[in-house]
Write a protein that binds this DNA or RNA. Structure first.
Length: 427
RNA sequence: GGAGGGGUGGCAGAGUGGUCGAAUGCACUGGUCUUGAAAACCAGCGUCGGUUCACGCCGACCGCGGGUUCGAAUCCCGCCCCCUCCGCCA
C-alpha cells in the first residue's frame, strides 16, 4: 500500500509514477474522491458519537443520584438512529478506500529505468564467460532424461503437466544445492535459517501483496482459507506481521528453503519444456527487514549474496535492473539475475531481488520503534531468490555438460555430493 | 475430533454494566539524590484515525465479527487462536 499522506499531498506525482507502470491514471484521482468522502463521513459520525457519549455519561450521573433520566434517554433515540444510518456509510467508505488501495502498485524508485516492458530493462553487469563447446550443447530436457535423473513423463503421470520427478544423482544434486546455498547464507552472509509453514492464510498473502490481485496464480486448498505458498517470501516476511520491533534488531536477515507452488493460470504455451516453469519447485529465499534509510544499500548487499551463489558455482550470469513496466506489483526496485543456458543459447532468470520499501510493511503492519523514541515507523522489506534451485540445477546440467553426455559436478558442490565429480548414466 | 479453562497495554496481571483506555508490578524514558553507579523517591510512558499553524481537542480499539442496552473490557451469539486432559496420528 502507498502512504495516504503521499496520495493526498502529491497526488499528481503519484499518478505520473503509476502511469510509468501501466496503471490507469484515474485510480489516483479516484482515491482522492473516496478519501474525501470517507473523511467527511468520519467527521459526521464522530460528532454524533461524541453527543452519545456525553448524553450517556449524563444519564449515568442522574441515575446514580437517583434522579429521573427519562428525558435524556428519550432524546438518545434520535442520535442512535442517526449513528446507525451513517455507520453503514462509513464502513462502506472504508471498504471502498481499502479495496482501491490494495489495487495500487508500489511507486518505482528514481533509479529505475522508465519503460513499458522488458525492452527497457537496464543491463547492470555481466559476470563470467559463456562456455565454448566443441560439440552441440544439449538442453536439460534432453540431458536429464538421458542421464536418468529427470523424468518429465512420470512427473506428468503422477501429477500432471509441469511436474517433474527427480531420481538418483539428480535428486541428490538438488539436495546438495539446497544445503550449499543455505550454508553459504547462514555461515557467510549472516542470515538466520527459517523453516516456515508451506501453507499460509489469506491475511499473509495480502500482507506481501499476492492477494487480492493475483489469486489466480495460487493453489488454494478447497473449502479453507489456506493456500500453498508461491514463495518463501510470504511466510517469512509475515513472521513479523502486526509487530513493533526494537530498532536494535535491524537488519533482520532470514533465509529459508521451501517448495514453491504456482498455478500460473494462463501461462500455458510459454516454457512448456523442461524444468523452467513448474507448478512446484524449490527455492532458497533471502528476506530482509531494513531501516528505511539503509534499504537500498541492503538491496545491493542482498543481490550480492545471491550473485555469490552463481560465482561459487562458476556459472556465467548477468544482472538486469527491471524497468518500471516490467517490475512486480509491490517492488520499488528489482534486480533480476539471469544465468546463461547453453542449451537455449540465452540468459534466463534465476533470481529476482527486490526492495519493497514500506509497501508490504504497510499492508502487513511491520513496524519498529526508533531508538531515540517516538512513534512506530514502518520497516522496509526486501527479498530475493538465492537461488531458484531447479533452475540452478538446469544451469549446471547445461553449462557443465560434456560431449559424452555426462555432467561435471561443480567443485563447490562436491563435498555436498559425497565426493561425486561427475554425473553419468546410472546403471 | 471430544471435554474443560483462557485470550486485557512491551511483559506480568487486576478489573463481571456507568468518569475504565483501563489498577498494580516489572521494563523503559526524564528528573531528584550520589564523586560515579545502584537503591530510593518524583514524573512520564499504548495503537490507529480525524481535526488544528500549534498547544490541544475528538473518535475508535481490552482476540475477531455481530447482538442486547441510554451506556459493554464486563451480558448474549458466531468465529479464530492458546493451554490442560482424553482420543487419534508421523
Amino acid at each position: 500500500m502507498l502512504a495516504r499522506e503521499l496520495l493526498r499531498e502529491q497526488n499528481e506525482r503519484v499518478q505520473e509514477l503509476l502511469e510509468t507502470r501501466g496503471t490507469p491514471s484515474e485510480l489516483a484521482t479516484n482515491w482522492l474522491t473516496l478519501d474525501r468522502n470517507r473523511r467527511d463521513l468520519l467527521a459526521e459520525i464522530e460528532a454524533l458519537r461524541r453527543r452519545r457519549n456525553e448524553a450517556s455519561k449524563e444519564i449515568g450521573q442522574l441515575k446514580k443520584a437517583g434522579e429521573d433520566a427519562g428525558a435524556p434517554i428519550a432524546a438518545m433515540a434520535e442520535i442512535k438512529s442517526s449513528i446507525a444510518k451513517i455507520e453503514s456509510s462509513v464502513s462502506q467508505a472504508d471498504a471502498d478506500l481499502r479495496e482501491l488501495e490494495l489495487q495500487l502498485p508500489n511507486l518505482p524508485h528514481e533509479s529505475v529505468p522508465r519503460g513499458a516492458d522488458a525492452t527497457a530493462n537496464r543491463l547492470e553487469r555481466t559476470i563470467g564467460e559463456p562456455p565454448v563447446f566443441d560439440f552441440e550443447p544439449k538442453a536439460h530436457w534432453d540431458l536429464g532424461p538421458e542421464l536418468g535423473i529427470l523424468d518429465f513423463e512420470r512427473g506428468a503421470k503422477i501429477a500432471g503437466a509441469r511436474f517433474t520427478a527427480y531420481f538418483g544423482l539428480g535428486a541428490q544434486l538438488e539436495r546438495a544445492l539446497i544445503n550449499f546455498m543455505l550454508d553459504l547464507h547462514t555461515a557467510e552472509h549472516g542470515y538466520r535459517e527459517v523453516l516456515p509453514p508451506f501453507i499460509v492464510n489469506s491475511n499473509s498473502l495480502v500482507g506481501t501483496a499476492q492477494l487480492p490481485k493475483f489469486g489466480e496464480d495460487l493453489f488454494k486448498l478447497e473449502g479453507t482459507d489456506y493456500y500453498l505458498i508461491p514463495t518463501a517470501e510470504v511466510p517469512v516476511t509475515n513472521v513479523h506481521r502486526e509487530e513493533i520491533l526494537d530498532e536494535a534488531v535491524f537488519p533482520v536477515r532470514y533465509v529459508a528453503c521451501t517448495p514453491c507452488f504456482r498455478a500460473e493460470a494462463g501461462s500455458y504455451g510459454k516454457d512448456v519444456r523442461g524444468l523452467i516453469r513448474q507448478h512446484q519447485f524449490n527455492k532458497v529465499e533471502l528476506v530482509q527487514l531494513s531501516l528505511p534509510d539503509s534499504s537500498y544499500e541492503a538491496l545491493e548487499e542482498l543481490t550480492g549474496h545471491a550473485e555469490e551463489v552463481l560465482k561459487q558455482l562458476e556459472l556465467p550470469y548477468r544482472v538486469v535492473c527491471l524497468s518500471t513496466g516490467d517490475m512486480g506489483f509491490g517492488a520499488a526496485k528489482t534486480y533480476d539475475l539471469e544465468v546463461w543456458l547453453p542449451g537455449q543459447n540465452a540468459y534466463r532468470e534465476i533470481s529476482s531481488c527486490s526492495n519493497y520499501e514500506a509497501f508490504q510493511a504497510r499492508r502487513a503492519s511491520i513496524r519498529y520503534r526508533p531508538s531515540e523514541g517516538g512513534k512506530p515507523r514502518f520497516a522496509h522489506t526486501l527479498n530475493g531468490s538465492a537461488l531458484a534451485v531447479g533452475r540452478t540445477l538446469v544451469a549446471i546440467l547445461e553449462n557443465y555438460q560434456q560431449e559424452d553426455g555426462s555432467v561435471v559436478v561443480p567443485e563447490a558442490l562436491r563435498s555436498y555430493m559425497r565426493g561425486v565429480e561427475s554425473i553419468t548414466v546410472e546403471t
